Simulated scan of single mutants.
Amino acid sequence: MVSYAKDIRPLFNAHDLACMKRKGVKLDSYDWMADPAGGEGYADHANGRTVFDFVRPDGNEPRMPMGGPYWDDDRVGLYRRWMEEGFGA
C-alpha cells in the first residue's frame, strides 16, 4: 500500500515545498494533502487531487514542479496509486 510518509512526501524536494508553501499549498502536510473535504471541483480530497492535476503530464498549467524537471510516469503512477488506495498516511 502506498503511504504519504514513505512514498509521497519524499517526491517533493525542499524547493517544491518552499515554492508551493508561498501559494498556500502544504505539500509537506499529510493532514492538508489528505483532507477528506471536497472543493475545487472534487467531491473528496480536493487538495490532494488538485496537486495531482498539476504534476500529471496532461493536467493543469503551470505544471509542477515549477520550472521542471517534471515527474516521470513512475512518480505520477505512484501518486495516482496513493489516491486510488485511499490517501493512506
Rank of each mutant, 00 (worst) to 15 (best):
D44F: 02
V55R: 04
A89P: 11
K6R: 12
D16H: 06
G24N: 03
V76E: 10
E40R: 12
F12Q: 03
Y42E: 10
M33A: 09
G77F: 10
H15V: 15
V51I: 14
R9T: 00
V2C: 00
E85W: 05
L27P: 06
N60I: 02
G41N: 05
Y4F: 15
E61Y: 12
M66Y: 14
S29F: 08
H45Q: 00
R81N: 08
I8G: 12
D44S: 13
M83D: 03
E84F: 00
A5I: 11
G88I: 00
A14K: 06
G68P: 10
S3C: 04
G86R: 00
D31G: 07
G41A: 07
A37N: 13
Y70D: 08
D73I: 13
G48V: 01
M20P: 02
R63N: 09
K6S: 07
P36K: 01
D16W: 02
A14F: 03
D28S: 08
K6E: 11
D74H: 12
A89S: 13
G59E: 11
Y30G: 06
V25D: 00
K23H: 11
P10G: 09
D72R: 09
E61N: 13
G59Y: 10
E40K: 05
D72V: 08
M20N: 15
W32E: 01
D28A: 09
E84H: 00
N47W: 02
M20K: 13
D16S: 06
V51D: 03
E85T: 07
G68F: 12
M33G: 01
E85N: 04
A18E: 14
F87S: 05
D58W: 11
M83F: 05
D53T: 12
D35G: 05
G24M: 01
Y70M: 10
D72Y: 05
A5E: 15
P65G: 15
N47S: 05
L11D: 04
L17F: 01
D35C: 14
M64V: 06
S3T: 15
D73R: 11
N13S: 10
R63F: 09
F52G: 02
R22C: 02
N13D: 15
G86I: 08
Y4T: 12
H15P: 00
D44Q: 03
R9L: 15
A43S: 13
G41V: 06
W71F: 15
D53Y: 02
D16C: 05
D58I: 09
T50D: 10
G59F: 11
G38L: 08
S29H: 03
P62R: 08
L78D: 06
D28T: 02
G41W: 04
G24I: 04
R75E: 14
R56W: 01
F52V: 01
M20Y: 13
G38K: 09
